[in-house]
Structure formats: structure tokens, C-alpha cells
């Protein structure tokens, strides 16, 4: 059996007295997508931030390709180079053109020449239908286009694992689809991903495994069909019922 890309072991995280993550364990095999669902405040963003080492965990460990990235002597910059993260609020660099947003990390972090970095960036922009936006500043783009640029920016460094945190919740419904289809394409191409989302329909389409997070604990996990259609736990049922009522299923 091959080793999973990501392995999270009994991770715990608290902010002061508030325990945000408790005994979180799961693993993500290569080329698969693990989707976290759960109500607001259940700890989804915190989990992704911990994996990306933007936040420090209080207990447990996280392994990337079998290497403990939460070890005291782990090289944070090196770990981050293997991880891509896309945020809910895009966080593009407003003072740089789209193309420069994308080529910054390949050039400065990976030391790729400007010509090659640009060539790769244009290939990615082409593939996601954004070629004509390369020379624009981010604020000239629609929300959906900005988010797709943010996705391209994080895959331009060819990460081992891509973390996507509610990447569509700042977008209106029409734009959601173009972003989701971008993620679906990535999934088909074999990108390994961990996602947090409120879009259950989307979760069903891309997830290999769905985890339901409730007050910082994984209450239930399984295939999308198991969790989304035949949940066992009362909390999961309750959550899905509320999502259903809000018209998101």
C-alpha cells in the first residue's frame, strides 16, 4: 500500500480556553479529495490553517509524504512550498498584474527563470479560459475570475497537496459554477486536495471521502453517498436537514 500524501494524527487545537479541534485524525491518499463539511465555526478553516502551518497545533502531529511537518525542527518554508492554499477571500496581490501574481512564487521560491515561469503561467491561464486577463490588475476581474486566478496561482508551484477553504462562499451563484468546474478539472487531472465547503452538490461530485466536522470533532466520515444520503449520526442528519432547507443540496 502506498503512503498517503497527508496524514493527520490526533490533532488538537484551542484558542485560549476554547477547544476548536479535538482528536482529528484522517489521511488523504494521492489523487483523492477529502471534503470537510460542517456548520459555521465547526473548525474547518482552522484545520486547513493548521495543515498549512499558518497556525500551531496544540497536540498530535501532521505528516506530509511521511514527514512530520509539525516537528520542532521542520522547515516551515519548505513545507509550504509543497502545499497550496486558496482562501475564501482570494487574497490576490492587488499591486501586481494577474500574470505577475502567478509567476511570483515560481520565480522567487523555485528559482525558475522569468521566461519559463511566464510560459507555464500562460498555459494555465489558457487552460482555464483566462488568457486575455493576464495583463489586468486583479481589481478589474470579477469575483469568479479572481478566485480562479488564485487557484492558478497556488497550483503554479505544483504543490503536492492543495487546500481549498470555502473558495466559493464569497461569490454569487452564477460565478460559483465556473470556480467549481475549475476544481473538478484539477481533480480529474489527479490533484490531491483537502476542501472545506458549504456546497453539498459539489462535495458529492469531487469528494472521495466526506468528513462531517462538529464542534471540532470528526463525527462521521465515509463516501459522499454514505454521508450525504445515509448519515448515521443525529447531528449529521440535523446539519444536512438545515442545509437542505437553505436550498444548498
Amino acid at each position: 500500500m502506498t503512503q498517503p500524501v497527508l496524514k493527520v494524527n490526533q490533532v488538537r487545537k484551542s484558542y485560549g480556553a476554547e477547544v476548536v479541534l479535538e482528536d482529528i485524525s484522517f489521511s488523504v491518499p494521492v489523487h483523492t479529495a477529502t471534503v470537510f463539511i460542517g456548520s459555521s465555526g465547526s473548525g474547518k478553516s482552522t484545520l486547513l490553517r493548521c495543515i498549512n502551518l499558518l497556525d500551531q497545533i496544540d497536540d498530535g502531529s501532521i505528516e506530509l509524504d511521511g514527514e512530520d511537518i509539525t516537528a520542532v525542527d521542520a522547515d516551515v518554508d519548505k513545507v509550504r512550498r509543497k502545499l497550496g492554499i486558496v482562501f475564501q477571500s482570494f487574497n490576490l496581490f492587488p499591486h501586481m498584474k494577474v500574470i505577475d501574481n502567478i509567476t511570483l512564487a515560481p520565480m522567487k521560491v523555485q528559482g525558475i527563470s522569468k521566461e519559463v515561469a511566464r510560459e507555464n503561467a500562460y498555459k494555465l491561464l489558457d487552460r482555464f479560459g483566462l488568457h486575455d486577463k493576464a495583463q489586468d490588475y486583479p481589481d478589474r476581474l470579477s469575483g469568479g475570475q479572481q478566485q480562479r486566478v488564485a487557484i492558478i496561482r497556488s497550483i503554479a508551484v505544483a504543490p503536492r497537496l492543495l487546500l481549498l477553504d470555502e473558495i466559493t462562499s464569497a461569490l454569487d451563484p452564477v460565478l460559483v459554477n465556473e470556480v467549481l468546474s475549475t476544481v473538478r478539472d484539477l481533480k480529474i487531472e489527479g490533484m490531491t486536495m483537502v476542501l472545506a465547503t458549504h456546497e453539498m452538490g459539489f462535495a458529492k461530485q469531487v469528494a472521495d471521502e466526506v468528513c462531517f466536522l462538529h464542534h471540532g470533532k470528526i463525527l462521521e466520515w465515509g463516501t459522499p453517498t454514505q454521508i450525504l444520503e445515509a448519515p448515521q449520526q443525529p447531528e449529521t442528519k440535523e446539519f444536512l436537514k438545515r442545509v437542505h432547507e437553505a436550498g444548498r443540496l
Binding site: 487574497n91 511570483l104 521560491v109
Partner: peptide, 21 residues
């Protein structure tokens, strides 16, 4: 701070995040 977080998560060092972002 999200700008720095974005830069750092792309693997840029502390100094590079300052310098370029």
C-alpha cells in the same frame, strides 16, 4: 495580514513577503 499569509503560504520567506508583497 491576509496578504502576508497569502505570500507565506506560497512559500515566500519572511523577507520576500515584505519585499514583494
Amino acid at each position: 495580514p491576509s496578504q502576508r499569509a497569502a505570500a507565506r503560504s506560497l512559500g515566500l520567506s519572511h523577507f520576500q513577503s515584505l519585499r514583494f508583497v
